[in-house]
Simulated assay, not measured.
Amino acid sequence: MGWRRCPAFSVSASSFHYDQRKEFSSSEHKKLYFDTHALVRLLEENGFTTQQSEIIVSALVKIINSNMEVVYKDMVTKMQQEISLQQIMSHIASVKKDMIILEKSEFSALRTENEKIKIELQQLKKQLHDEIVKLRADNKLGFNLEKSRVKEMYAENERRLLEIRSEIVELHAQQDRGLTQTNRKIDTEVAGLRTMLESHKLDTIKYLAGSVFTCLTIALGFYRLWI
């Protein structure tokens, strides 16, 4: 029997009768109930023959089964969902427990490391404080030694200056004494020379006077002889 085109029609929910239902499924646990007899009668009422209606319904059943297979591939049952949920919750609890243990161990390790760093910082701070105290003591000692050395140098310079001043004063005194002695000696020698000159002058005068008297005596003698 050939196919013939049927006019447009609308289907309402009241036109279906579920006295005869055909079961189709994608698996043993997934079943879909479909009233094929009501659909065949609906097609016959709209101009299709019984054979055409059965072929159309059979094709629809195959198409629906194929689509349901595709849909059911991504679907799970409530029991499987609960099992998966329990597995996920168990895994989450295990991960949470591991995270808590890891967090505690990491926190303990971190606290131990912090305590170690704190102790090292305290030791470093103490060493730094000791070095600063030692450096200050060394600087203070060096400053005091340098101050003492400067004072000693100043005292030594003052002593040397006093000695030089004393030597200069002594030298001046010696020079003054030498000059005084020289002046006295010169004065004494000058006085002696003056005395000697006076004596020689007196002797010369005496000699000249004697010579004059002698000459006069001789002259008088010659004069008397001539007269």
Rank of each mutant, 00 (worst) to 15 (best):
M1W: 13
W3D: 07
C6K: 11
S10Y: 07
V11L: 09
V11F: 05
A13N: 07
A13Q: 03
S15G: 11
F16D: 07
Y18N: 14
Y18F: 14
D19P: 00
Q20F: 07
Q20N: 03
S25H: 08
S25G: 15
S26F: 08
S26D: 02
S27K: 12
K30E: 13
L32S: 09
F34G: 04
F34Q: 07
D35H: 15
D35W: 12
H37K: 15
V40F: 08
E45S: 15
E45G: 10
E45F: 13
T49D: 13
T49N: 09
T50M: 14
Q51R: 05
Q51S: 11
I55D: 06
I56N: 08
V57I: 13
L60P: 02
L60T: 10
V61A: 07
K62W: 10
N65H: 11
N65V: 13
N65M: 13
S66R: 15
N67H: 13
N67P: 02
N67S: 14
E69N: 07
V70Q: 15
V71Y: 10
V71M: 15
M75P: 02
V76R: 04
V76A: 08
T77K: 12
T77G: 09
T77W: 06
M79H: 12
Q80F: 01
E82C: 01
S84F: 03
L85N: 07
Q87I: 05
Q87R: 08
S90E: 13
S94E: 11
L102R: 04
L102Y: 06
E103Q: 01
K104P: 01
E106Y: 02
S108R: 05
A109F: 08
R111P: 03
E115V: 01
E120G: 05
K126T: 09
I132F: 09
R136H: 09
D138M: 11
K140L: 08
K140D: 12
G142L: 15
G142N: 11
N144F: 12
N144I: 12
S148Q: 13
S148W: 03
R149T: 10
R149F: 04
V150F: 11
Y154L: 15
R159G: 03
R160F: 08
R160T: 06
L161P: 01
E163W: 13
R165N: 02
S166I: 03
I168H: 05
V169H: 05
A173V: 03
Q175G: 00
R177D: 13
Q181E: 12
R184N: 05
K185L: 10
I186M: 14
A191D: 14
T195P: 00
M196T: 11
M196H: 14
M196G: 12
L197R: 14
E198D: 12
S199H: 10
A209V: 09
A209P: 00
S211R: 14
V212N: 14
L216S: 14
L220P: 00
F222N: 01
F222A: 03
R224H: 01
I227E: 04
I227K: 00
